[in-house]
């Protein structure tokens, strides 16, 4: 882990340098256009300084995004509609609610699949096939339909999030509940253990590594679901709404800051699941 710090920092620095160069390159056309319209010529150093501070650049420079982030995260009150924290919280609450629902239902279905042969044979192929389907495409319909029967706000977005996190959890959990070896099942059989005892003492504990891997995929998918779920409601609130509003009005700095906000949110949530995974598996003696 320690030896990765240097290379990672180098790569991040390289990305920032490329970003700055790209910002100069992509924004220069606008600067030259303005200068030509004003009838003046601009030197190269003037172009560079101008490309760093345009109001609506094609590609905002990293420090512009950082300033926007600072202004919308720290300087604004969290209840303000211009605060990124406010929008982030709206997206986060839908994500977490959906993730909870999806994970709960996914685990229940996985338990059913493991214990019923008929259920396994009928549901499992569909659960696997459904992962090849662009489920996100039905997001706008779910939002509009639920809206038309009077359900709006948090729940429709949460349903999309739940749907996206549901299938990874089912597939991972089924694999996990089946992961104990035959010898272990045989041992419990010689103890005359009931099915419930086999489940609580053997299947559930050995499924946890699989569950956490699925949870990481699921929570990232939930966030994507919540963001896309915010698009069709016409950009009211949330990170997805910030993206859409930014693209309507050409506010590129706002788009990038919403994007960074979403990235930080995703990183934090995946990281949190990772910490939970490490702590839990360590306490159970399962970590390697």
């Amino acid at each position: 882990m320690r030896q990765a710090v240097g290379p990672v920092l180098a790569v991040v620095a390289a990305i920032l340098v490329i970003w700055y160069f790209a910002a100069v390159w992509m924004n220069a056309a606008w600067t030259q256009q303005q200068a030509a319209r004003a009838g003046t010529t601009v030197t190269f150093s003037e172009i560079v300084t101008d490309t760093m501070q345009q109001a609506r650049p094609r590609l905002p420079a990293p420090h512009q995004v950082a300033v926007e982030l600072w202004n919308t995260v720290v300087m604004k009150k969290v209840t303000s509609k211009r605060s990124l924290v406010y929008h982030g919280w709206i997206t986060l609450s839908a994500t977490l609610l959906g993730f909870g629902i999806g994970t709960g239902l996914g685990i229940l279905l996985a338990v059913g699949i493991v214990h019923s042969r008929a259920m396994d044979m009928s549901v499992m192929p569909w659960a696997i096939a459904s992962q090849t389907i662009p489920i996100l495409a039905i997001a706008p319909m779910i939002i509009v339909v639920l809206n038309s029967i009077g359900i709006s706000g948090l729940l429709p977005k949460a349903i999309i999030s739940a749907y996206l996190s549901f299938f990874p959890v089912v597939v991972g959990m089924v694999a996990g509940l089946r992961s104990p070896e035959t010898a272990q099942f045989d041992l419990l059989k010689t103890y005359n253990a009931s099915r419930a005892q086999v489940f609580w003492r053997l299947r559930l504990p050995s499924s946890l590594p699989y569950l956490f891997t699925s949870l990481k995929i699921g929570i990232a998918a939930s966030l994507v679901g919540a963001i896309v779920g915010e698009l069709p409601t016409g950009a009211v609130a949330g990170l997805g709404a910030r993206l859409l509003a930014g693209s309507y009005y050409g506010q590129t700095v706002q788009i990038w800051s919403a994007l960074i906000g979403a990235a930080v949110l995703a990183g934090l949530m995946v990281g949190l699941v990772g910490v939970l995974q490490r702590v839990t598996l360590k306490r159970m003696g399962l970590s390697r």
Binding site: Q3, A4, G6, P7, V8, L9, A10, V11, V12, I15, L136, K216, A220, L223, V224, I227, V228, L239, G240, L243, L244, G246, S247, T252, I255, W256, A258, L259, A262, A263, A266, G267, V270
Partner: peptide, 23 residues
């Protein structure tokens, strides 16, 4: 490069990249 790009790459792969669509 491998040691630097792999962690950054796996972090980016978990991000909601779909958000770059408007840009």
């Amino acid at each position: 490069l491998r040691r630097g790009l792999l962690p950054v790459g796996s972090f980016i792969a978990a991000l909601p990249i779909i958000g770059t669509a408007p840009i």
